[in-house]
Design a protein around this nucleic acid. Structure first.
Lengths: 351, 351
DNA sequence: ATGTCTCACTGTACCGGTATAGACGCGCTG
DNA sequence: CAGCGCGTCTATACCGGTACAGTGAGACAT
């Protein structure tokens, strides 16, 4: 077993055993096509030669199946995975896809000069997760005519999509504090690359998710005959600056509805540092229903979304697309639910 | 441009334009090999035909390069990504690899009957992240003779590895509380699939990381002439049961050193529910230096590891392996650092 | 004895690209 | 004007498998 021989392929083994290459292929891929004895002989020789099985790339080419589906993020991965929601989604979809024999390949929009993952990586399908519409990577994926599922993304005509009921969730969040008697609400939202500052409504939300949540909050706020200032924090970075702006307002808000649990946690920290007690002086509502919300001190009232269900839904749609039954595009919208924690209470004046 | 035609390949375009297939290939992959005019013509025709570029799978086969490196986790992904440390590592390595033109493929040890990701997915190399040694997936990767880097894993002879100085970190953690005057310490560790309960030292740690941390804690504890009970919690699941066991002890521990920040946060919650005040009645030290530790209330004294550096180191080693300069296996051990938070203080008797 | 089946294995033609070594025409030099 | 180098394009031979349509031998029914 000298190391001098080149690469061991099916042919190498075929020659050694004295059968055709096809028979060796069958020994690995279609055991019922040859006698058990011969198969054992072949497998033994393969083991002896250190052959680990048919080359995945070659097999992919011949079978026309890459064995992996891509997930495209707009953010760099470092951000994508700092986010409990995104990470949970990836986990769920990966778990769901595993039994079907697909791995998950992470795709960035980051385009190095000559390497564009969305164009150059072998894929059977792809999930677009919360991407900006203007991401060039989406175009490549579309051009490749891959089965695509858009998740937390503005649905595209002709393509499947999975969303949660962001608008309804935001409405529930705002209705909750309004129901507690609050009249001075503030909205804390985030936007990619934005500066901390006030935003006027009607606002140009950069992304469907923020857009829908803004709409939902104001469904409730305007519905109650109220209005509310909106502050915006950079999506990645400390929202503290944005939150600080709220303390200057007169009247100071007694409740803040936030884009995410992370933002809510930051708001609670900022409030505490400023000397306010949550929920006595200030109510805070998050969004997503993460562990952070549950474990935070005080626990955060939030809108729970089922991240695992989102992953399963995406996987199911992908499965249906890949098995070819070309149906109309399906749009799935998952429900959300208010989870009351300890971060909300009636406003100070009413206590 | 009827849809009736089959798949569009280089040949299709070559025929349409009236050049050889090779020239079309060059138009996409080696622009300097043909005149700008012809290239423009070819690209135009390709666009017209909806050809997105050379098929990645075929190109991989011909070039002998898959364009993706695998990351193997022992856990299911759902768990892997719930973990801030694991998620951060994936993010860092992905970011580091992107410029080299490699995507990241997630591999599980979960082996469906006929699909073994570690065997069947096209890969140029792989990172093994905190895997159990007995994972069959590792063997497949080894058999394929892929360049491999073991991260947070017991180093394998002949292979590169990246670890942090777990033992030193644990020693620092225990030394810190011992230095504060604590004499009754307890150790909270975790093990895959374990039941909540006391473990005796010398203990059979299932994994290098827990093993090294245990050794480190006891370096300090024994070094100070003390001893300490060790409770073990299931790796995934609520450590509350394990922690509750500590309240029964006499004397009750005044300090707990924990396997992770997550475990430390759980310990603080459990202690608070039990009626203890951290750090007045009980000191708690975590491990990892996550955001959770920083944001927790009180902030958690912890041992910081540089997750991003770990990712970069792994990516660098992979790069070196893949470019072929076959050197001896390299073992990188990254330093750790004590970060003092608000969860540790002198023991109650000394106050 | 003949026809028909099934089982086990083989031959051939792809899958869709890329590497490499030429072929050809052209302007430049000596 | 032969000789040379260069810029363009082409021909051929892989890359390492798999699908599918045989082929031949033995089992079995007629």
């Amino acid at each position: 077993m000298m190391e001098a021989m080149g690469r061991v392929t099916l042919q190498t083994i075929a020659d050694e055993v004295g059968v055709s290459r096809m028979t060796v292929s069958n020994a690995f891929s279609r055991p019922d096509q040859l006698s058990a004895d011969l198969r054992a002989t072949i497998l033994a020789k393969a083991a002896e030669l250190g052959y680990a099985g048919p080359d995945p790339t070659a097999r992919s080419l011949a079978r026309g199946r890459a064995g992996s589906v891509g997930i495209l993020f707009t953010d760099t991965f470092s951000y994508a995975f700092e986010d409990e929601v995104a990470a949970g989604f990836v986990g769920a979809i990966a778990a769901e896809l595993a039994p079907t024999g697909s791995a998950i390949t992470l795709l960035t929009s980051d385009t190095t000069a000559d390497f564009v993952p969305a164009r150059d990586v072998a894929l059977d399908a792809a999930v677009l997760y919360a991407c900006n519409d203007d991401s060039g990577a989406i175009d490549w994926l579309v051009r490749r005519r891959l089965p695509l599922v858009f998740v937390d993304h503005r649905p595209r005509p002709g393509y499947d999509s999975v969303n949660i009921d962001d608008r309804e969730g935001a409405r529930l969040a705002a209705d909750h504090v309004i129901g507690l008697g609050h009249e001075h609400l503030a909205v804390l939202t985030t936007a990619h690359g934005a500066e901390a500052g006030f935003v006027s409504a009607p606002f140009a939300a950069t992304h469907v998710v923020s857009e829908q949540r803004l709409l939902g909050w104001f469904d409730a706020i305007h519905g109650a005959g109220l209005d509310a200032p909106v502050v915006q924090a950079p999506k990645h970075g400390d929202p503290a600056d944005a939150i600080a702006l709220l303390w200057e307002l007169d009247p100071r808000p007694t409740a803040i509805v936030c884009f995410s649990d992370v933002a809510a946690a930051a708001a609670i920290r900022a409030a505490t540092e400023y000397g306010l007690v949550v929920p006595d002086d200030l109510s805070v509502v998050g969004f997503d229903g993460t562990q952070l919300a549950a474990w935070s001190q005080p626990s955060i009232t939030t809108i729970r979304q089922d991240v695992a269900a989102k992953g399963r839904a995406a996987a199911t749609l992908l499965g249906e697309r890949m098995t070819g039954s070309t149906k109309r595009a399906r749009r799935i919208v998952l429900p959300v639910e208010l989870v009351v924690g300890d971060s909300t209470a009636p406003p100070p004046t009413q206590r």
